[in-house]
Design a binder for these strands. Structure first.
Lengths: 177, 177
DNA sequence: CATTTTACTTTGGTCGGCCAAGTAATGAGG
DNA sequence: CCTCATTACTTGGCCGACCAAAGTAAAATG
């Protein structure tokens, strides 16, 4: 008895008679997997700082650009407006960000990093460096440059497709080494 | 381009006297951006099929492997168990998946794709091909191979770091060709 | 045989992220 | 001056994804 292993496909299992390995072909999955691992690593590095993954990205923009109109920030990070709104609400509640209405345009609001948040800057920088180190560990300079170049091409290709579908514009980012 | 400065930093803006471009250096962000765009493109391609991005991945595994123990599925996709549980609940409610308790192990459950879902297989395959085409548009064969290789290295590097941090095991998917 | 440890899954909570609608203020025409 | 489209942001809903903790059943150990 011992009902070993699973039962064989009983109901409707084998729709396709494809043996296996339908999954490892596309580069798409490699991207997804890498992104997921990268996010986990980022979360681990940022946890001690009290930031959730994604927030550092926003904060970096704010630290970098000073007080900005929220719409500018949204365009800069390329995320959905509603996403940025919610993230800012949480960051404001955490005391990392302050928002005030724009005197020049009452429907807009200006966003800026608080003084208290500035202490995080160096730590976030360090965390990012650490993350970058973890990510690119095992790649030499040439490989890193090539990876950057290829990702840039993929990004612009996807961007073209995405805007064709009706979304907003993408920032064709950069080149550079 | 992209708009020049709005107002100058007024209150507490310049924590760091760093002029700009703190953001385009790391490859990390390229990965995040590409992954995000890729996800959006996937969502667009899958919407007509009634699937949300991520579900196809699970379904592909199920179509490929027949009835499997849920734990096996979890290990295969490498996601968090709770994530898989919730996704399966939704897929079950959508009629794409069926779950039954494993007779051999009463705490486990067997998962399989339903008959109805099989009609989606070919469409998902087509959608994936389309997505792959969109993603790699503009890269020649050598570049694609190189990108795959580099992503593989990054994945294994990140994997090592992640497991070091205490998480589960990663599938070092090293499918070279 | 009782107890502890391990494995399989689920629940609850929180966040990032998208879309689709909705609100409020600005600006262009009639 | 009043209407209408546009811009700027918010709300609600939903899903993917994580973590942490719980619950249950099997296995290992005494």
């Amino acid at each position: 008895m011992t009902a070993e292993s699973v039962q064989e496909p009983h109901a409707a299992a084998q729709c396709a008679a494809v043996p296996g390995a339908v999954l490892d072909g596309p580069v798409s999955h490699a991207i997804s997997r890498v992104a997921r691992l990268h996010r986990i690593a980022a979360g681990r590095v940022l946890r001690d700082l009290g930031l959730h993954p994604g927030q550092e990205f926003l904060m970096m923009h704010l630290w970098d650009s000073g007080a900005v109109r929220q719409s500018e920030l949204i365009k800069a990070v390329g995320l959905d407006p509603s996403t940025v709104t919610k993230m800012l609400q949480r960051l404001e509640q955490s005391g990392h960000v302050r928002r005030r209405p724009d005197p020049a345009d009452r429907r807009a609001s200006l966003v800026e990093a608080t003084d208290a948040s500035c202490g995080l800057l160096v730590e976030v920088r360090r965390a990012w460096g650490e993350l970058e180190r973890q990510t690119l560990d095992g790649l030499d300079a040439a490989e890193r440059a090539e990876l950057t170049r290829l990702l840039g091409k993929v990004e612009s290709a996807l961007c073209t497709e995405v805007i064709r579908g009706g979304a907003a514009e993408c920032d064709a980012a950069g080149t550079a080494e």
